[in-house]
């Protein structure tokens, strides 16, 4: 009964990411999209926060947002998604929680 969390706000703007990380259960996933992908920039405060999450939790990012923002996603263990893969993830997890 795992949850796919979706984050779309920049970590420097809102508490979305920190609140999501606090209530993440083992086996949950996080999808970063929109400005939230700023969290994946190596060396950023948010990227450091992400290093600390439970190893059973997977991190994903929408590829278009990563490319658009010139983020080097190789630095972090993150799986890039196109829309078909995003849909498939929503099916794979038991519920989707968008932290709008």
């Amino acid at each position: 009964m795992t949850t796919l969390h979706i984050i779309n706000a920049a970590p420097t703007q809102t508490t979305q990411l920190s609140s999501c990380l606090r209530v993440l259960s083992a086996g949950d996933g996080i999808v970063f999209c929109g400005e939230a992908v700023q969290a994946l920039r190596a060396g950023s405060l948010a990227a450091q926060q992400l290093q600390g999450i439970d190893h059973s939790c997977k991190v994903y990012a929408l590829e278009e947002d990563v490319l658009a923002r010139a983020i080097d996603a190789e630095a972090l263990p993150v799986t890039l998604l196109d829309y078909p893969a995003f849909v498939a993830l929503c099916v794979a997890y038991s519920r989707v929680s968008s932290w709008t």
Binding site: N8, C33, L62, P84, V87, V91
Partner: peptide, 23 residues
């Protein structure tokens, strides 16, 4: 969100992918 928000474009692309996947 309004149609000017990136989220609403994302919603559309997601919805298109939902149907394309046969859901």
């Amino acid at each position: 969100s309004s149609s000017n928000a990136p989220a609403t474009r994302r919603a559309l692309r997601f919805a298109q992918a939902v149907l394309a996947a046969g859901h």
